[in-house]
């Protein structure tokens, strides 16, 4: 029992930090700047593919440095030459439509260049060994690396937003753009900068996420929804909220997989017997383990009903 508990907890923490790594870029763009960027997962996918392509010629570590830079440039271009011309910054609808279309374009582009099939898994040799073994289960070094990067992202984002001048300007630009402009700051270029940073983070996540996720053109649509769940459950405008939401979802989901009980077992324990003829029998028979992948979305719906601003949010979603 203790074995299962410890290994589930570890898996949950690893998964939670991975989720945070994925959503950190979006936290910056959506949570801090208020831009609903559906194409974020597309940039993440580009990061994975760019890392693979550069890694083939220059090695993984060079690719790890270059992928975020390239993704940052792509992000800046999306904002400067695309989103800026989308009318009406007050409503989210135009930017959703624009970035949604962009996501499809990115997917088709990836299909044309790299094909429909997954590209070979490329864990670099330096990270491809079991770091430690606990109760007979090994934990690969690349997962530890991933966790370190994720924590590094959190710390640097936190410091940048809360302890620097530019962080102050970014946060102010969301709520009081005229005031910030009147104080002599170039608000449009703040947007470009934030978009570039957020996209660079997505690129970095993609470079590393390619190990665990399968790098295929479907990647963007696989990870896209979960990233939004984290930002919304965590709360708009809160970095710590995003971290807590990631960990919560990671750990909940991992533990749910282990629970092989259903509502039927609960009824049995309470002395109520249900048979195949009872109404909703199918529903009672679903094991908790089977619902694990749905938990994030269940949490999202519950959160929007009970507390629309999320765990630590400063404004309503």
């Amino acid at each position: 029992m203790i074995e299962v508990f410890v290994s589930s907890l570890l898996n949950g923490v690893v998964y939670g930090l991975l989720l945070f790594m994925l959503s950190s870029g979006l936290t910056l763009i959506f949570s801090m700047m208020g831009v609903l960027n559906i194409a974020h997962a597309g940039v993440f996918m580009l990061g994975a593919y760019i890392t693979y392509q550069i890694g083939k010629y220059a090695g993984f570590w060079v690719a790890l440095m270059l992928a975020p830079v390239l993704c940052g440039l792509i992000g800046a271009a999306i904002e400067r030459y695309g989103l800026r011309f989308v009318p009406n910054r007050k409503s989210h609808v135009p930017e959703i439509l624009f970035t949604f279309g962009l996501l499809y374009l990115i997917e088709e582009l990836v299909v044309m260049i790299w094909g429909r099939n997954p590209i070979p898994a490329t864990v670099p040799e330096a990270l491809d060994f079991p770091l430690f073994t606990l109760f007979g289960t090994s934990y690969p070094a690349y997962k530890a690396f991933m966790m370190a990067v994720s924590i590094g992202m959190f710390v640097s984002l936190y410091v940048a937003l809360k302890r620097t001048r530019i962080g102050l300007v970014i946060q102010a630009a969301l709520t009081h753009p005229q005031m910030v402009a009147a104080l002599g700051h170039n608000v449009p270029s703040v947007y470009v900068l934030v978009f570039a940073l957020g996209s660079a983070l997505a690129g970095l996540a993609g470079a590393i996420g390619g190990f665990t996720w399968l790098t295929a053109p479907t990647l963007a649509f696989t990870v896209g929804p979960i990233v939004f769940v984290i930002v919304i459950v965590g709360g708009l405008g809160s970095l710590a909220g995003a971290l807590i939401a990631s960990m919560l979802i990671g750990i909940l989901q991992t533990f749910a997989v282990v629970v092989d009980y259903s509502l039927r077992d609960l009824f049995a324990a309470l002395g109520v017997t249900v048979s195949a003829s009872s109404p909703l029998y199918e529903l009672y028979s679903i094991k908790v383990a089977q619902t694990a992948p749905v938990i994030p979305y269940l949490l999202l719906v519950l959160m929007l009903i009970v507390r629309p601003r999320g765990l630590l949010g400063t404004r309503d979603a």
Partner: peptide, 21 residues
């Protein structure tokens, strides 16, 4: 005897942990 929702699971480590256990 486990069933997973079709193409929805992103991390199979918990399932592998269960298999090992």
């Amino acid at each position: 005897n486990e069933f997973v929702p079709l193409q929805k699971v992103q991390d199979f480590s918990p399932y592998v942990a269960k298999i090992k256990a």
